[in-house]
Amino acid sequence: MIKNLSQAARLMALAALALQGAAHAADITVVVGNVQQGTGTIMLGLFDNAQSFPKTISKGTMAQASERDAAGQVRLVLHDVAPGDYAVSAYQDLNGDGKLSTNMMGLPTEPYGFSNNARGAFGPPAFKDAAFTVPAQGVTIELQVK
């Protein structure tokens, strides 16, 4: 009985841990489409508030463009994200300089995109237009870099 209680307690503790884990460790799977063939890296950034968007990422990941599948898509995962509202930016770093290259007028010269495929006129969209909700069980989103 005690043994059983102890087992129950351990199970409950595990369950609580699991629940806690689920609450704080959702994954965002981002399917980036329209990836150009060849060299370069897909750079992904996560933003958790409008103030930092689109300058300061709260989390990031990257993948080689050579991982592109037949449909021109690369799949990246942002791990351990607390449920809430987020926006994602992506660009294909064609020249490998680790940043979104721009021309002399400051306009991007590498393919880029945002969650919801939100687009601004000659600039980034508003955070609210790119925002999506991450539930406890995680989410898969698609966006295109252009």
Partner: peptide, 8 residues
Amino acid sequence: SPETQGAP
């Protein structure tokens, strides 16, 4: 040039 790509 790379710096003027897509520029006016």
